[in-house]
């Protein structure tokens, strides 16, 4: 197993963990974190692709690396917006759950410790 394969397998494991978390956790905050874990896996995958595509006297292929930087910034801004939405949801409804109120009463009241 060479280095690129090892990185690729780690990336797949991260993406798998992220998808599992995204599907099984109902809490929005955990979904956001799971989405970021998927993102980390994809960034690692891009790193592995860049490493494997080295050629023409360069240490690694710069095109995937440049896309990687763009991706990290976009993931950051999306996460910041998602967290802001979640905080606003908590301020307005007093709940951080996406479940409807009839089925699941909110387990958090405003002012209660997190």
């Amino acid at each position: 197993m060479n280095t690129a394969t090892l990185f690729g397998l780690c990336a797949s494991a991260l993406i798998g963990m992220g998808v599992y978390g995204l599907l099984t956790n109902p809490q929005p905050l955990r979904k956001i974190i799971a989405l970021n874990i998927i993102g980390s896996g994809i960034f690692l995958l891009f790193g592995a692709i860049a490493y494997r595509g080295a050629g023409a006297g360069m240490g690694s292929d710069p095109v995937p690396q440049a896309l990687l930087i763009t991706g990290i910034v976009v993931a950051f801004s999306a996460t910041a917006l998602a967290i802001a939405l979640l905080l606003r949801l908590y301020e307005v409804t007093g709940s951080v759950s996406l479940a409807s109120d009839e089925a699941n009463p909110p387990d958090h009241k405003p002012g209660a410790p997190e």
Partner: peptide, 14 residues
């Protein structure tokens, strides 16, 4: 090379 990609070849992305 990464800066070259970001600001010359793929400047629209940036």
């Amino acid at each position: 090379p990464i800066t070259a990609v970001l600001l010359a070849f793929r400047a629209m992305d940036t």
